[in-house]
C-alpha cells in the first residue's frame, strides 16, 4: 500500500458514501450537501488520474454552478415552512433488488475483464495540451458547444420567466 493507494481509497470512500447518502436520505437539503461531497470526491479522483485541469473545472462548474442551481431549485419549488424539506419515495423494494443485481453484474464485468492497461508518463500539466487540442482537433465541437450553451441559457431564461396565461 503506497500513499497513492491510501489516498485513492479515502476519496473512493468519500465519493461512494456520500453518493449513497444522496440517494437514500429523505431530506432534500441534506441530499444537496451530500452531493457537494460527492463532487469533491470525484474531483480528488480526477487528480489521482493526473487530470488536474479537469479537477478544477469539476469544482468550479459542478460545485460553484450546478449545485447552486440545484439548491435554488429546491428552495423555489417547496413551500418552506420549516428547515426539513422532504421527498417521497416509490418502488424502493423493487428498485433495490433490480439495482443490486445490476450493480453486481456491472462491477463483476469491470473486475473480470482483462483491460489493456498501458499508462502513459504523466505530463507536468494538462492545461496546455487540453487548450491546444480543443482549438485544433476539436475546434468544430468547441464552437458547437458554445452555441449550444448560449441557446440553452437563453431557452432556460425564457422558459422560467414565461407568464402563466401565455402557456
Amino acid at each position: 500500500m503506497t500513499l497513492y493507494d491510501i489516498i485513492f481509497y479515502l476519496f473512493a470512500l468519500i465519493t461512494i458514501g456520500s453518493a449513497m447518502l444522496v440517494v437514500t436520505t429523505k431530506n432534500i437539503v441534506h441530499a444537496a450537501f451530500a452531493l457537494l461531497l460527492t463532487f469533491f470526491g470525484v474531483a480528488g479522483i480526477y487528480v489521482l488520474l493526473a487530470a488536474d485541469f479537469l479537477a478544477i473545472v469539476q469544482i468550479m462548474v459542478y460545485v460553484g454552478g450546478i449545485l447552486v442551481l440545484i439548491i435554488f431549485g429546491v428552495m423555489l419549488t417547496n413551500k418552506i415552512t420549516s428547515v426539513e424539506i422532504k421527498t417521497g419515495t416509490l418502488n424502493v423494494l423493487t428498485a433495490s433488488i433490480v439495482i443490486g443485481v445490476f450493480m453486481g453484474l456491472v462491477v463483476s464485468i469491470m473486475v473480470w475483464t482483462g483491460w489493456y492497461s498501458m499508462p502513459a508518463p504523466i505530463p507536468a500539466t494538462t492545461a496546455y495540451g487540453l487548450g491546444e487540442t480543443l482549438i485544433s482537433d476539436y475546434a468544430l465541437i468547441f464552437e458547437l458547444l458554445a452555441m449550444l450553451l448560449l441557446i440553452a441559457l437563453v431557452g432556460a431564461a425564457s422558459i422560467a420567466r414565461r407568464e402563466k396565461e401565455s402557456l
Partner: peptide, 15 residues
C-alpha cells in the same frame, strides 16, 4: 459502475 448504479437508483425511487 457503483456511482452509475446509485444514480439510476436515485432516479427510480425519488419522487
Amino acid at each position: 459502475a457503483i456511482l452509475f448504479s446509485l444514480g439510476i437508483y436515485g432516479i427510480i425511487t425519488r419522487k
